[in-house]
Design a protein around this nucleic acid. Structure first.
Lengths: 320, 320
DNA sequence: AAGCTCGTTGCACATATGTGCAGACGAAAG
DNA sequence: CTTTCGTCTGCACATATGTGCAACGAGCTT
C-alpha cells in the first residue's frame, strides 16, 4: 500500500501541477477539484516542483543574450552562464546563490544513460544541497578524485555530496575510495593497476559530463583541499615552487594552463587535465573574485566548456 | 530610444526571472536589487512569462505515465496528452481549459525553421487565444484551408487566428485566400493551377506540424463549418448520404476513416487526408464527448500523431 | 506652449500562497 | 489490544503576490 500511496501522491501532484501551471487555476479551485484543502494543494505543488514533475527554465533569448556571456564566449571560447548577484553580497551568500543557480542550470544537462563525474569541495557541496530531483534511468555519478587524507577519511564529506547527486537524479553512485593525495607516487601507480580501481577509472573515462569547482590557495575562503589537512608545509612549498595558481579535482596547474612537471600531480588521485579535456561537456562553477587567478589559469588550460559564474567575477574576468 | 527601452525591459525581466525562479528570491528582495518597486517586479515577471523568457513544463514521469495516455497509445497508436478536467465542467469551460493546455503543450513542439499548418474553427480559435510567446526565426504559419463563403469572407475570423499564431511565434503568416468550399469542383481545379495558389500549396506540402480540431455535425456546439453558412441544405443531405461523421480542415471522412468518393471533398479547399498523413507531426485538439464519433473516425483515418484531449472524453474513447 | 496619447510607476488594497501546529490516521512494534 | 512513531490533514495566521487607480513623464500634434 505504501507504493500505491506514493503513486497516488504523484498522480495528484501531477494533476495539480497541470491545473496550476498549464490551466492557470488558483490553488483554491484545484483544492475543490481534488477534494482536499488548499494547503494540501500548496504542498502538492511544492512536491511537484522539488521532485521534478515541473520544470522551470529561464532562457536568454538566443539573439541578444547578455553581452557579458557573449563577450566571455568570444574571449575565452566557453559558454558562460552568468548568475546575477549584487556586488555588495557577502562571499558566502554569493556562493550560495551561484550554487543554487548552478544546480538548476545543471538539470537539463544531465539525462538518462549518462555518466557525470563530480569533484568535491565547498562549491560542489553547496551545489549538491540545491539540486532538484530529476528522474533518470541507467545513469551514474562517479567521483573524480579521492577524498581521504592523513587525518580523516574525508569520506563523510565527499560521499555526502555524491549521494545527494545520486538521489537527486536517481543515479547509481560510484565512489572512489582512495586518498586525495598519495604520499608516494609509486603507491598510486601500483594501486592504479588494481582491478577495482581500474573499474572506476574506466567509468570516469566514459563520462559525459564533468562537474567541478576550482581550488585556489589565495581564495578568501581557501578551498577545502588547502585547509582540510590534505597538504603539509612541504607540499605547500612545493606548490609554490611550481608556480601553481589553482587546481581542478586536486590536479594543479600554472597561470599559463600548463600542468606538466608539477610533482604533486604525480601523487594526486584526480584525472589529468589532458584526460579531462576529452570529456565532451565540462562544467565549472566559480564564485568570488578571489578565484580569478585560478579561473584564468583554468581557462588557459581549456579544462571547461561551460562556466557558471557570478556576475561580479564575470565582469572582473573581462577587465584588461 | 524606444528600442533601447524595450531592450532594457527585457534585460530587467530576464534578471528578475533568474532571481525569482533560479534563486528563489522573493519579489521584495528582487525589487531592492533592481531599485524598483515590488509591484514592478511582479509585472516584470508576468512579462517574462508571457514573453517566453521563462518556460514552465509539466512532465509526466515517462515510466508510469497516466495509464490513460498509455492505453490510448496502445489502442490507437497516438501520443495522447490528457487534460484533467472535472466531469461536471460545462462544455465551454472544458473547451477553454483544453485549449489553454494545448497552447502550452504546443510550445515545445514548434521551433525555428519550422512550418506549421493550422486549420480554423472554434477549437483553434480558443487555442490561439491562449498561446504564449516564443521567439523563433525563419518559421512560418500556413493556413490549411480557405475560409470565405457565400455570406462572408470569413477572413476576419480565420486571419485573426492565424495572426495570433504568427505573433506568438514571431513567424511569417501565409494566408490561404480561397473559399472553404467551391461551388463547382472545376473552379478548384483551375484555381489550383494558379501560381499564387500553388505557392501556398507548396508551403503546405513542406510543413513540419499540422494543427487542427475536428468538425462534427453532431457536436453540442456544432462546429463552425456547420453553422457559419458554409453549407446549404443540399450539402448537408449529401454529407448524410456519404455517411460522413466528421471533418478535418473541411475534408470529410466516414466512421471507418475512409474519405474516398465523398463528393464534397472535391469541392473542399483543405488538404486531402492522404496528403495530410505525410506530415511528420499532426496534432489534433479535441474537447467534449459529442466529438467522439468524429474522433473515432479520425483515429481510424490515421490523421493524427498527437491527440490533446480532455479527460472525460478520453475515458469515453476507451470504453468498449 | 498647451494639449494629447501612451506607457510606466508606486501605492493601497484584495487575493493568493506558504507554513507552524495540533489533531487524526495507519502501519509496525510490543 | 495498546503503544509508538511517522505521515498527512486542515486550520489559522503570516507572508507574498496581483491589480485598479491616480499620478507622472516622454514624445507628438496643434
Amino acid at each position: 500500500m505504501a507504493d500505491t500511496a506514493g503513486a497516488e501522491k504523484e498522480r495528484d501532484a501531477l494533476r495539480a501541477a497541470h491545473l496550476y501551471y498549464l490551466q492557470d487555476l488558483t490553488m483554491e479551485a484545484i483544492a475543490t477539484e481534488l477534494h482536499t484543502s488548499r494547503s494540501s494543494v500548496s504542498r502538492l505543488l511544492g512536491y511537484a516542483r522539488d521532485t521534478g514533475l515541473v520544470e522551470i527554465q529561464v532562457k536568454s533569448p538566443l539573439d541578444r543574450l547578455s553581452s557579458l556571456q557573449e563577450r566571455i564566449r568570444v574571449k575565452h571560447g566557453v559558454t558562460a552562464h552568468v548568475v546575477p548577484v549584487p556586488d555588495s553580497t557577502a562571499e558566502v551568500d554569493r556562493l550560495e546563490r551561484v550554487a543554487m543557480s548552478a544546480a538548476r542550470i545543471l538539470g537539463p544537462f544531465f539525462d538518462s544513460n549518462m555518466t557525470m563525474g563530480i569533484a568535491w569541495g565547498s562549491t560542489l557541496s553547496a551545489v549538491s544541497r540545491h539540486l532538484q530531483e530529476k528522474v533518470t534511468h541507467n545513469s551514474q555519478i562517479v567521483q573524480l578524485n579521492g577524498a581521504s587524507n592523513a587525518r580523516t577519511t574525508g569520506i563523510g564529506y565527499a560521499s555526502e555530496i555524491m549521494s545527494r547527486f545520486g538521489t537527486a537524479f536517481g543515479a547509481y553512485v560510484q565512489q572512489f575510495p582512495v586518498p586525495a593525495f598519495f604520499d608516494d607516487p609509486r603507491t598510486k601507480e601500483v594501486l592504479w593497476r588494481e582491478r577495482s580501481i581500474r573499474r572506476v577509472l574506466e567509468i570516469q573515462k566514459h563520462m559525459d559530463i564533468a562537474l567541478f569547482g576550482l581550488g585556489s590557495a589565495y581564495a578568501d575562503v581557501p578551498s577545502h583541499v588547502y585547509v582540510g589537512g590534505y597538504l603539509d608545509d612541504d607540499d605547500f612549498q612545493q606548490l609554490g615552487r611550481s608556480q601553481v595558481v589553482g587546481d581542478v579535482a586536486t590536479v594543479f596547474y600554472r597561470a599559463d594552463g600548463s600542468s606538466e612537471d608539477i610533482p604533486m600531480n604525480a601523487r594526486s588521485s584526480g584525472p589529468s587535465l589532458e584526460w579531462l579535456r576529452k570529456v565532451s561537456r565540462r562544467v565549472c562553477v566559480v564564485s568570488g573574485r578571489s578565484k580569478l587567478p585560478a579561473l584564468r589559469g583554468a581557462l588557459a588550460a581549456g579544462v571547461m566548456t561551460d562556466l557558471i559564474i557570478d556576475e561580479t567575477t564575470a565582469h572582473s574576468l573581462l577587465e584588461d
